[in-house]
Design a binder for these strands. Structure first.
Length: 104
DNA sequence: TCGAATGACAGCG
DNA sequence: CGCTGTCATTCGA
């Protein structure tokens, strides 16, 4: 986390902001939307987000529906998602396809 | 289950 | 001037 992406991160955040409330996406989807395969770089961009409000990185999860990680902690992430109406079970999203947001 | 790959940037030789 | 390491992941054998 020594790198300070800028343009690349901005792209990730822009997509994040596009996600409507009550929906979630995956790092893979973000990377795919950015036309890149550096899934890690996408997640890394979330860590570099300036504000958790402007960049709801809590709406981003693993492709398996797992929570993965969050700046405030996985538990906090789950709480936030639950607050939006998304159900979480065992650190996993319930009905991922149901609340999954596609960037098409 | 484990390792390799991917994109971008800072630091160092 | 050029290479390496790191990152909240992902996929394949």
């Amino acid at each position: 986390m020594k790198n300070k992406d800028l343009s690349f991160n901005q792209q990730c955040w822009q997509l994040l902001k596009k996600i409507p409330k009550g929906k979630v996406t995956t790092y893979k989807a973000l990377a795919n939307a950015l036309n890149t395969k550096a899934y890690q770089a996408v997640g890394s961009a979330m860590a570099a987000n300036p504000d958790l409000i402007s960049v709801p990185c809590h709406r981003v999860i693993n492709s398996d529906g797992r929570i993965g990680k969050f700046a405030l902690g996985e538990a906090k992430k789950i709480e936030l998602l639950r607050s939006e109406g998304i159900e979480i079970k065992d650190n996993k999203v319930v009905d991922l396809e149901h609340c999954f947001f596609d960037f098409s």
